[in-house]
Amino acid sequence: MSTPPQRGRSLAFFAGFGVAALLIAGVLSYLAYPHPDGLDTVTLQGCSEASGGEQLRDDCLAQNADDHALADSPLADYTVGGNAVLLGLSGIIGVLVTLVIGGGLFWLLRPRRTENPTDER
């Protein structure tokens, strides 16, 4: 299996990959173009969007769309407690949560290799 230098090389690469994700979510996210994406553009076409969150129900694909069931949750809409200035922080939390859930799931699911007992405890 991995020799120590290989493992060190992997760790350095993984660390760099993780830092890149944190920088994108924490810093670059502020430069995102603040307009509806392609899907929202299509589903909202025909409905006049009013500011302040009240939507005038007209005629569009999203005319029967419901508010999100968890719209009042602390990180809803990539804010922290509704504060949109903290977008970067909510992004960093999201990256870490995704990493822990994804990485943790994949780590726990990996088959145990019996032919190399030194690899396992």
Partner: peptide, 28 residues
Amino acid sequence: SRAQLDERTAPMAGLVAAFVFALQLINF
């Protein structure tokens, strides 16, 4: 995917998920 998971692919896949999450925040 189970058979494919080892001590190298598991963290890599976790990082790919985190990276996709980060990139989805970047509306261009």
